[in-house]
């Protein structure tokens, strides 16, 4: 089943066409990577899916429903979770309270349990009571992911989650995304090609706002146009 379908999605900032005519179909349960050089429009594209950026053209359907006009917070309620490229946690609150804000939509009775699970899954179980501002940069990024998880989303959007993480933390995150496969669909923007190749079921390559190629990792890796535009080979 197709969970997310965009048709002719476009966004211009003044004269600059950051995203042009992108039609994307993401199947339920898939891990879809979006790659492309800096400024290709990846963040803008997922920003439109999440409702942070209003499209200049095109439509977005989620689980069969047209969500193009819905405000971001309503899309979150429908199951689209977004984790920020530039970490955006509540620095004055504890890790627990950060995640609680995401987890408190659900059932009150098992809320504490769900908070604990989300923190444990990203490896922050020991930091429950720590203030977010006291965390290292990498840990703040993981907290960001934990907040996304605690929303129990149907679609989890991660914008460069491994940026600034240490080797060990990247491995942990990869294990986590693999484990998520059974419970949620993942839209992953990622620069680290090893991570992309290891995790993605399919890869969409963006270049200057448009889809350059799309397919399974092996096919994309072999694509001459992609190599020219992005892989630099």
């Amino acid at each position: 089943m197709t969970l997310l379908a965009t048709r002719g999605l476009g966004k211009s900032f003044g004269g600059l066409e950051a995203v042009r005519g992108v039609s994307l179909d993401v199947a339920e349960g898939e891990v879809r990577a979006i790659i492309g050089p800096n400024g290709a429009g990846k963040s803008t594209l997922v920003g439109m899916v999440a409702g942070r950026t209003r499209p200049s053209a095109g439509t977005i359907a989620f689980a069969g429903r047209d969500v193009t006009a819905l405000p971001a917070w309503r899309r979150v309620r429908l199951g689209i979770a977004y984790t920020f490229q530039i970490t955006s946690v509540f620095s004055g609150l504890t890790c627990r309270d950060n995640v609680a804000l995401a987890a408190q939509h659900g059932d009150r009775r098992d809320r504490d349990e769900r908070i604990a699970v989300a923190l444990r899954r990203v490896g922050l179980a020991d930091a429950v009571a720590r203030t977010a501002s006291a965390l290292s940069y990498g840990h703040r990024r993981l907290l960001e992911v934990a907040m996304g998880l605690a929303l129990a989303p149907r679609l989890l959007i991660m914008d460069e989650p491994t940026q600034g993480l240490a080797e060990g933390e990247i491995d942990g995150l990869c294990r986590l995304v693999r484990a998520l496969r059974t419970e949620t669909t993942v839209l992953l923007i990622e620069h680290n090609m090893a991570v992309v190749m290891a995790l993605a079921d399919r890869i969409t390559v963006l270049d200057r706002g448009a889809v350059l190629a799309e397919g399974p990792p092996a096919a994309v890796r072999a694509d001459a146009a992609v190599r020219a535009a992005y892989l630099g080979a």
Partner: peptide, 19 residues
């Protein structure tokens, strides 16, 4: 908690599903 969240970081609160 949502009110404090709005004070601290409105954008994040919105992306956690609150208006």
């Amino acid at each position: 908690r949502v009110l404090v969240g709005i004070r601290e970081n409105e954008d994040r609160v919105r992306m956690l599903g609150y208006d």
